[in-house]
């Protein structure tokens, strides 16, 4: 446990010292919220901000989480990983700390968006609802960063990994239910959106917004996340024999 918190501390300090990175990670989702949420002349929902905010939240976690693999990759390229692996700290704590750090960092970004959304006219929710939103975002963050780390461990060089993240992020976002309801989508898009893991998290957050508790989606998300984490652990152990 000491290992996990120390590794998280290290990544956190490194992140906040890299100021451009901090600013860009906060500006990008805010820009989406403002430009898409306020500027698009949308007529299919009452309060489009309420509709778009869950989409932007999940997109933020996605972009933050998908690049998480590069953290472990750079530790490996720069020689840190070998140092850490030669220490008595349980090796898995390296992997766990990366996944947790990325998820927590995603939640910090999500908080900024939630505040901004309310400031520009989204409906305020009650504390329980916010708690559920955070739970869903956290599970989704763990899911994405574990997935990304697994891919990074396989790909082994940074250029391929950057190409992979670029290829995955935008298509996933545009084929999800982030921007429009299923009823407004063409049939082909609706079919894709229904199986897109992003829509899954977005729809769950929208359910929370309407006042219901999406027990089944949360449980399913929990199962998917557990599967990917176990997979990441397996690949990590294989790569670090």
């Amino acid at each position: 446990m000491k290992g996990v918190t120390t590794y998280i501390y290290r990544d956190f300090i490194r992140w906040i010292r890299y100021r451009v990175g901090v600013i860009s990670s906060l500006v990008l989702p805010a820009a989406w919220l403002l430009f898409v949420g306020l500027a698009l002349p949308v007529t299919f929902t009452g309060n489009y901000l309420d509709f778009i905010t869950p989409g932007i939240l999940v997109m933020t976690i996605l972009t933050a989480g998908i690049s998480s693999g590069s953290l472990l990759m750079f530790d490996k390229i720069l020689g840190f990983l070998n140092k850490f692996l030669a220490m008595p700290v349980p090796r898995e704590s390296i992997l766990i700390s990366k996944i947790l750090f990325i998820s927590i960092r995603g939640l910090i970004q999500a908080t900024i968006i939630l505040i901004l959304a309310v400031l520009i006219g989204a409906t305020m929710m009650n504390p329980l609802q916010y708690g559920l939103v955070y739970l869903i975002l956290f599970l989704f963050g763990v899911f994405i960063s574990a997935f990304s780390t697994t891919v990074a461990l396989y790909l082994d060089d940074h250029d391929s990994f950057a190409a992979f993240t670029a290829m995955v992020t935008m298509p996933l976002f545009f084929t999800s239910s982030a921007l429009m309801p299923y009823s407004s989508m063409p049939d082909w898009l609706s079919a894709i959106a229904h199986v897109n893991p992003l829509s899954f998290a977005i729809d769950a957050i929208r359910d929370v917004g309407t006042g219901s508790v999406p027990v089944v989606p949360i449980l399913l998300l929990l199962v998917f996340t557990a599967v990917v984490v176990v997979l990441a652990g397996y690949v990590f152990r294989k790569v670090t024999v």
Binding site: G3, R10, L78, F80
Partner: peptide, 22 residues
């Protein structure tokens, strides 16, 4: 290892403390 793996955005003391905690 030979790579000189030191966290350059951390101070010398912070680098050391991380190892002491680990």
């Amino acid at each position: 290892p030979q790579d000189m793996a030191v966290d350059t955005n951390l101070t010398g003391r912070e680098n050391m403390l991380i190892f002491a905690w680990l």
